[in-house]
Design a binder for these strands. Structure first.
Lengths: 143, 143
DNA sequence: TTCTTAATGAGAATGATTCGCATTTGCATT
DNA sequence: AATGCAAATGCGAATCATTCTCATTAAGAA
């Protein structure tokens, strides 16, 4: 199966029309790995020669997030939201406070904690947000 | 010791002048328990008859955060930042997606996880952000 | 009481995001 | 392939949270 077929399927499943702009956003997110801001995405798309406007980037990301195609996050002390493709394997992020890069970490330590919350506080847990921040191995060296 | 003495001490320790506005913000945060946005804080202060402007609220919260007196957080899908008094006991928050209330939970399940990250990924952990969201016990009933 | 400097108020400026509306484009149906 | 219509896009204006500027006020040391 070609990449473009994969994207077409994602869009069809989400009941979204297949447009050049949507394909291009899926492709960039797919290649990018780490979360990107709407503006970065816009710049990358322009650089690739894709005709698109910033508001369309926002609109597409919104639609994607509604359909569960992407996940939006807000990192502390960063004023813009970032987006990445939804990933089956639940994972979290390490943020380097020096170089501002984002590293994925697979796995999640919260199952027991959430069970405890459900039992002790009678709260139905639907999800969580977790980011860990600090100094990545490259930035550690430099100091 | 009176409450106002407590606030005076906090300000002195932070090397900040004691002003009516700063006392008032400390008092509201102290009574409020849960995190509040700058605007909510401003509204509450006005309601109490405190003369203050919104920019001052932001400035004071900024200064407080710099001194470690308050903690600022960004909850997902909420565009404004929220602030609460720094609390010695490390804790996290439960967000009810229905009533939007915030509940504190003491304790933290991340020690082992962070140790693992430090070892496996050679990343120096400085802190983390964790919020759990779902339906609180009151909203659960209503449905 | 005076002086210096930090803090405040009011509103303008900024930056991220959303909205409104005219135009274009997928795509289901002839 | 041509048609029609709803969905998607582009552009700029609008909005929202937050920060900045600068003139005025008030803490607190001397």
């Amino acid at each position: 199966m070609k990449q473009s077929d994969k994207y077409a399927e994602i869009l069809k499943k989400g009941d979204l029309r297949a447009t050049k702009q949507r394909y291009a956003i899926l492709e960039v997110l797919d290649c990018n790995g780490a979360p990107v801001s709407a503006e970065d995405l816009y710049i990358q798309l322009k650089r690739k020669g894709i005709p698109i406007s910033l508001s369309t980037v926002y609109r597409i990301l919104d639609a994607f997030q509604e359909k569960g195609i992407v996940v939006r996050s807000n990192f502390p002390d960063v004023s813009k939201a970032v987006y990445e493709l939804f990933c089956e394997e639940h994972h979290h992020h390490l943020l380097c406070v020096d170089c501002r890069r984002v590293f994925p970490v697979e796995g999640c330590p919260l199952e027991d904690y959430e069970r405890l919350i459900e039992e002790r506080l009678n709260f139905t847990v639907k999800g969580h947000n977790l980011e860990v921040y600090g100094h990545c191995k490259d930035c550690k060296k430099k100091t």
